[in-house]
Simulated assay, not measured.
Amino acid sequence: MSDVAAGRNYDLRDEIKTYWSERAATFDLSPGHEIFSEEERAAWHRLFLRHLGQGDGRAALDIASGTGVISHLLDDLDFKVTGLDWAEPMLERARQKARSRKRAISFRMGDAESTMEPDDHYDVIVNRHLVWTLVDPAAAFAEWLRVLKPGGTLLIVDGDFVNTGALERLFSRLSAWGQRAGVFKPDAPMHSREMMETHRSILSRVHFANGARAEAVVELLKATGFTDIVVDTDLGEIHRTQAKNWNFFKGLARRSQHRYAIRASKRAA
């Protein structure tokens, strides 16, 4: 095969997969990805209980499971959890984490837009910080509807990470100033300038390049056939616990963002 032909076959999805494969090594070092306190863990548990209830052995699918953070939270609540991710380095870390914690979580390779999972199989589907990265969210939502059992529940935790409000911009500038002035401890660099450029390039070409606003996600869910859709922006408890890992102004910047949980249902048979 010629280099030109190979280049044509390397599309945006491949770029995204490569990017997250490279991010796997430092993913768990970042507050907001891994959980750094029992207080934060409890806050996540309360969010899931509010929207999903206790697991009681029900089947849950964690899509774009990464290193397994959300999978472990669901396992804590007695769900029978399968984690799906398309980046093998993420899966390797997730499996190792599950072994070290003696958790019976199944992690396997899979695409959010084509899971290869059976029809009507899962009681619950959860994902965090996935929807804003999707190339074709309508196709992904149709796939999730297919693999949910009738009456099953989808929970999306996401946000608009493109459009920043005046308060967030102010707090971010104050945080950066404090770090330059030595008032605040500098943020540990998680990835290189080249990786940051790759991230910006990818973000400019995904479906929600202009920001994944909750109302836009809801409209796509409705069009797909999801029902009983609820938008929950009361994530303050989680954000307060995460903020303890940052300087004061960076914590305020996080809490100023448009972040949300969206619960939706598959119509009962």
Rank of each mutant, 00 (worst) to 15 (best):
Y122V: 01
P137T: 07
F48T: 02
G7E: 13
G32T: 02
A253V: 00
L134Y: 01
Q96V: 10
F249Y: 03
S2K: 09
L203G: 15
D232M: 01
R267P: 09
A188L: 13
F79W: 02
A212W: 05
G7D: 15
H51N: 03
T164S: 11
L170H: 11
E40Q: 04
E143F: 04
R193W: 11
E117G: 05
M195A: 15
L49E: 14
I63Y: 05
E92I: 12
A98F: 09
S37L: 00
W44T: 03
R41D: 04
G68I: 04
F226I: 04
K266R: 06
G68M: 04
F249V: 00
D11G: 12
T164V: 10
E22S: 12
I238R: 00
E92Y: 07
L77T: 00
V206P: 08
T198H: 14
A24D: 06
E194I: 09
M190A: 12
A176F: 07
G151E: 03
V131R: 06
T67F: 00
D78N: 15
F184T: 00
A94H: 02
S65M: 07
T26S: 14
M1S: 14
K244V: 10
A268N: 10
H121W: 12
A166T: 11
T198M: 14
G53W: 02
R95T: 07
A214S: 15
G68N: 05
D85K: 08
P186D: 06
P31H: 00
L174C: 10
I262P: 01
M1G: 15
L203I: 11
V157F: 11
I70F: 06
A138T: 14
T26V: 11
D28G: 03
M190D: 12
M109D: 10
R267Y: 09
V218Q: 07
R180E: 12
T233V: 12
D56F: 12
E113A: 15
P89W: 00
D85N: 10
S256T: 02
S65T: 15
T133D: 07
T233E: 15
F248E: 09
F249L: 01
F249R: 00
L167G: 06
F48D: 05
R259W: 08
S2I: 08
A268P: 09
G151M: 06
M196L: 13
A138I: 09
W177E: 14
